[in-house]
């Protein structure tokens, strides 16, 4: 296939960026989207131009490192991660625009790489269960009903990629946070910190400069792990209960 790529190039965190056009030929359907960019980069290096910086690590759809906005859609046209998107989802002659996640809480570092440490700080604010090493009771001591375990698992599937933020018209991080709150809040082990957790995580989220949620649902549609919108609702409920003095 022959394609025209329009890629966001930005020299550094404080540099101005712009969309630059690169034609590319000989793209195979079996290539992953990132392999197509690898090929472009090899061509750029051969020409003496600096290759395009983009993040990826596992290339298996699980580490959450990759993430590009392709033709205006976070992770591109399929519901998957960018690394698992293949070129057979495009056709010969297509023009493809490639941009980084855009959110003030995810500042661009270079080209298509962004800084997502704000997510880590949200987890630091309470996205854990305090369990000191070595002090744990036998794993079989607490039974967890399968339905709760399944729902916790669903929240735990989040890979922290940030596509929800990239896709949300408000640049809100509610789906990411809701997923964690649901994961921990559904388990018996997570109960003691349940209400304090949600309050401090939401405070941190707001302090990081993410937008508010107006229930638009775009986040869930872009989420490669299919985290459902109802985790946001669950978080809202816990938040209200916390504010009403439940702990």
């Amino acid at each position: 296939m022959k394609l025209t790529l329009k890629i966001w190039r930005q020299g550094g965190p404080s540099a101005d960026g712009e969309m630059v056009t690169y034609p590319i030929e000989g793209v195979s359907e079996d290539m992953s989207f990132l392999e197509m960019l690898d090929v472009l980069n090899e061509e750029l290096i051969a020409k003496g131009e600096e290759p395009v910086a983009f993040d990826s690590d596992c290339r298996e759809g699980i580490c959450g490192m990759c993430g590009l906005v392709i033709n205006g859609q976070a992770h591109g046209p399929e519901v998957t991660t960018t690394c698992q998107l293949h070129m057979r989802s495009f056709s010969d002659g297509d023009e493809i625009s490639i941009e980084p996640w855009r959110a003030e809480a995810f500042p661009v570092l270079k080209d298509l790489c962004v800084d997502r440490t704000s997510f880590d700080r949200i987890i630091q604010a309470g996205g854990y269960i305090s369990a000191n090493t070595g002090a744990a009771p036998d794993a079989a001591a607490t039974l967890v009903p399968k339905d709760d375990a399944d729902r916790a698992f669903m929240g735990a599937e989040c890979i922290g990629c940030g596509a929800c933020v990239a896709a949300c018209p408000n640049a809100s991080g509610m789906l990411f946070m809701g997923a964690k709150v649901t994961h921990l809040g559904e388990l018996p082990q997570g109960q003691p910190e349940r209400y304090a957790r949600v309050v401090s995580m939401v405070d941190q989220h707001d302090a990081e400069g993410f937008g508010g949620c107006t229930n638009l649902g775009e986040c869930s549609r872009a989420c490669p792990k299919g985290i459902p919108l109802n985790v946001i609702s669950q978080m809202n409920r816990d938040l209200q209960r916390a504010k009403l003095g439940k702990h």
Binding site: M19, G72, E99, P169, S172, G211, E218
Partner: peptide, 18 residues
């Protein structure tokens, strides 16, 4: 707040129904 949370717009937008 939404405006502050995303100051630079996407070059391609409007695909999202939301």
């Amino acid at each position: 707040r939404a405006g502050k949370a995303r100051k630079s717009r996407y070059a391609v937008s409007g695909v999202a129904k939301s």
